[in-house]
């Protein structure tokens, strides 16, 4: 059955069983391999993507629920040449160890920063409560998300203000 999905602003037609979880469609049909398969049970967060601004676990969501909705994956946050603020901050602070959980962490953080550019540590921890990291880079992840918030704010300031501040 053909299903239309909008991922990172681009429309796609995929021919899959409508019960297929989004994660499999992203990886197998659209070659977007950023979102990772961790537990397959919606408990580890490594498959997190953003749907209409909210963090969602793609391993649990059948694609039939996603027609007409805006899906953003980590590939939508920037490119190697031009990393987005979250990616830039994670590189700057070397927040990844093995890196498997990081796309999910960044997508949860993306959803958080969209609604709150200056979250407190408690708010970051709450938003990432279902994102597990086994390497233990949590402190750097926290720092990177704070840094990304700063980068986003700086980028959104009008030029004149930036000049004064600089």
């Amino acid at each position: 059955m053909s299903i239309s999905l909008t991922v990172n602003g681009r429309p796609h037609q995929v021919d899959v069983d409508p019960a297929t979880p989004l994660l499999y469609v992203l990886r197998d049909d659209l070659a977007l391999n950023g979102a990772k398969y961790g537990c397959g049970l919606g408990q580890c967060g490594s498959c997190t993507v953003v749907v209409d601004g909210e963090a969602v676990l793609s391993c649990m969501v059948p694609v039939m629920l996603l027609e007409g909705r805006e899906i953003t994956t980590i590939e939508g946050l920037g490119t190697i040449e031009e990393p987005g603020p979250l990616q830039q901050a994670f590189i700057e602070l070397q927040a990844a160890q093995c890196g498997y959980c990081i796309p999910g962490m960044m997508m949860s953080a993306h959803a958080l920063l969209r609604r709150n550019a200056r979250p407190s540590d408690a708010e970051i921890r709450e938003a990432l409560a279902t994102n597990l990291c086994r390497c233990g880079t949590h402190m750097r992840i926290l720092a990177a998300i704070r840094r990304a918030g700063e980068l986003m704010q700086a980028a959104s300031l009008p030029k004149a203000d930036k000049g004064r501040a600089g």
Binding site: D17, P18, A19, P21, C59, L65
Partner: peptide, 19 residues
């Protein structure tokens, strides 16, 4: 178990059943 272990076809049933 995982979310892919038993992909059940959603066609045919009621909308509630499919979900």
């Amino acid at each position: 178990g995982d979310s892919q272990s038993s992909p059940v076809s959603a066609s045919g049933g009621s909308p509630g059943e499919a979900i």
